[in-house]
Structures are given as structure tokens and as C-alpha cells.
């Protein structure tokens, strides 16, 4: 991974900056000391360009800025150290991190060792009010799926719905569905509707497999909505739900269901469309 990051940086950043980073990496690999690591990790900001966007064959890092990319490369060095050194420095840096540094730390979680010791930090990071920090943990990151308890997972997904984040980019959004989450989503939807507000249609994906009477009613409401995104979501739920509790909705949603059949509509396509809308204008 380190080579991928360095190659991507070489294509974007100045030669001086990249050679500085290579120097830091080789020095820290051979002889790791805390202070030089701190200086290097934060000092990335003195040499790289935070506005530059990374291109790479590795999809995970496409769109990252140079700060994040260079800092993750340095964290990969830290991850090779013994457990105590690693955990001490990782938490020292995290506890004193600015916004971009936190984003790098959370983005690096998937490649770190001793992941079980980092779960609490990730859960805590999700409490941030800063959307970019929240995103670095929740979106495009396999870490929560692999390590979170149901309770932490459900909090993360509910917050994503609450602040209108693109759910299709949460790893495990399908695999980690559960009863409590489905009920909480229905509760949130009812609260929003009572206030005359909307809920992102992607939310209903997490209810598949847990359709009770009330949620069946919610899906029926979506199926009859004037908003095409709501109907699309209802159709996707109906198409996937195997309990037979939503069979009666199939006639209302015939158009949407045929789109699904020919591959014109999927959770991903709906999610991407919602993401474009979120960028333009918040759902709320």
C-alpha cells in the first residue's frame, strides 16, 4: 500500500515534497522516535498541497488530498512498530489532531494492526460535528463493518441518515442490517414526517428482512409518494423483501420494478443520485 500511496503522490506533489516523505519513511522505519514522527506527521502540511486531488488505480484513494495520502503513508510505518509504541503514538497523535490529521488517522484504520484497540477511537470520532471527519470513518471504510458492535453500528447508520450522508458508501450497509436499526429508522421517519420533513430514501434499505406491520405501512407510504426517489426506494425494498409482506405493492410500483429488472435502478444508482442532490441541496 505504501508504494501505491507514494506513486500517487509522485504524480501529484512536488519532487522535493515526495523525496522529503521518502526520507522520513526510511528514517522512521529504521529508527523510530516519537518526536520526529510527530514533526513528520504534522509537518506534511508544510510540504504538500491540501487542495490537490489524488489520482490512482487504487479506487480507495482516488479523490484524497495530498495531506491525507502522505500522512497515511507515515502511519503505515508506525503500524509496523511494536504494539505499545504503536498504540501510544497513534493515540497521542489522534488526541491532538487537527481536522485533516483526524481524517488521515481514520482513513488509515483499515491498514493498521491491533485494530481491536482502535474501535473506541473510531466510535468516538463519529461523535464529531465535523462532517469530513464523520465521513472518513463511516464512508468507504471497511473498519466499522468489521469491528463495531450492533449498538455502535446502528448509531453510525442513524447519524448518517440524520445528517444526509450517502448510505450506499457505507461498507456492510446490507450485511449488517438488524431489527433494532429497522425500528429506529421507522421511528426517525415518523418524527421527520411529523415535522414536515423528509428522510433519505436510501434509509429503507436497512429495513429489508425486518418488515413488520408498521414498516410495511411506511413502505406503502413511500410507494404512493409523489417523489420518484421515494418510489424507487420502495420498489427496491419490495424487490428484495422475501417475507411476502409487501407483495400487494407490486402493482403500484410496476414501472420501477421493471427498471430494476433491466438494471436501470439499483441501490447504488439511487444512492449516487441522492448524493448529487445532497451536494446541491440538503434534503432537510
Amino acid at each position: 500500500m505504501r508504494d501505491t500511496l507514494l506513486a500517487a503522490l509522485s504524480a501529484s506533489a512536488s519532487a522535493d515534497a515526495v523525496s522529503w516523505l521518502r526520507g522520513q519513511i526510511s528514517e522512521l522505519s529504521e529508527n523510530f522516535e516519537k518526536h520526529p514522527f510527530y514533526y513528520a506527521f504534522s509537518g506534511v502540511s508544510r510540504r504538500f498541497d491540501k487542495a490537490a486531488t489524488i489520482q490512482s488505480e487504487n479506487e480507495t484513494i482516488v479523490g484524497w488530498d495530498e495531506f491525507r495520502t502522505a500522512r497515511v503513508a507515515l502511519l503505515l510505518v508506525l503500524a509496523e512498530k511494536d504494539k505499545d509504541t504503536f498504540l501510544e503514538s497513534f493515540s497521542a497523535v489522534l488526541n491532538t489532531a487537527d481536522i485533516r490529521e483526524q481524517i488521515a488517522l481514520f482513513s488509515a484504520l483499515r491498514w493498521m494492526r491491533h485494530q481491536e484497540d482502535l474501535v473506541e477511537s473510531a466510535v468516538d470520532g463519529l461523535r464529531s460535528n465535523i462532517v469530513d471527519i464523520y465521513d472518513s470513518i463511516a464512508l468507504d471504510n471497511p473498519f466499522p463493518q468489521e469491528h463495531f458492535t450492533d449498538e455502535a453500528w446502528n448509531q453510525m447508520v442513524l447519524k448518517a441518515i440524520f445528517i444526509s450522508r450517502p448510505l450506499h458508501r457505507i461498507h456492510g450497509i446490507e450485511a449488517r442490517r438488524n431489527q433494532a436499526l429497522a425500528e429506529a429508522i421507522s421511528d426517525l421517519a415518523h418524527e421527520r414526517w411529523a415535522a414536515g420533513r423528509l428522510i433519505t430514501p436510501e434509509a429503507w434499505r436497512s429495513c429489508i428482512g425486518f418488515i413488520d406491520e408498521r414498516i410495511a405501512g411506511d413502505i406503502a407510504k413511500m410507494a404512493e409518494s409523489e417523489n420518484p426517489d421515494d418510489r424507487a426506494a420502495a420498489a427496491l425494498v419490495v424487490a428484495e423483501e422475501e417475507s411476502g409482506k409487501l407483495e400487494s405493492r407490486k402493482t403500484t410500483l410496476a414501472d420501477e420494478l421493471s427498471k430494476i429488472e433491466i438494471g436501470d435502478l439499483s441501490w447504488k444508482s439511487l444512492g449516487q443520485e441522492m448524493e448529487d442532490k445532497i451536494i446541491r441541496k440538503s434534503l432537510t
Binding site: 510527530y38 514533526y39 502540511s45 497521542a92
Partner: peptide
């Protein structure tokens, strides 16, 4: 001990 964590930061 704490200061080295901050002095090279952005800004």
C-alpha cells in the same frame, strides 16, 4: 512533552 505534537501543525 506535549508541544512537539503541535508545533509543526498547519497554521
Amino acid at each position: 512533552e506535549l508541544m512537539p505534537l503541535y508545533i509543526c501543525k498547519e497554521g
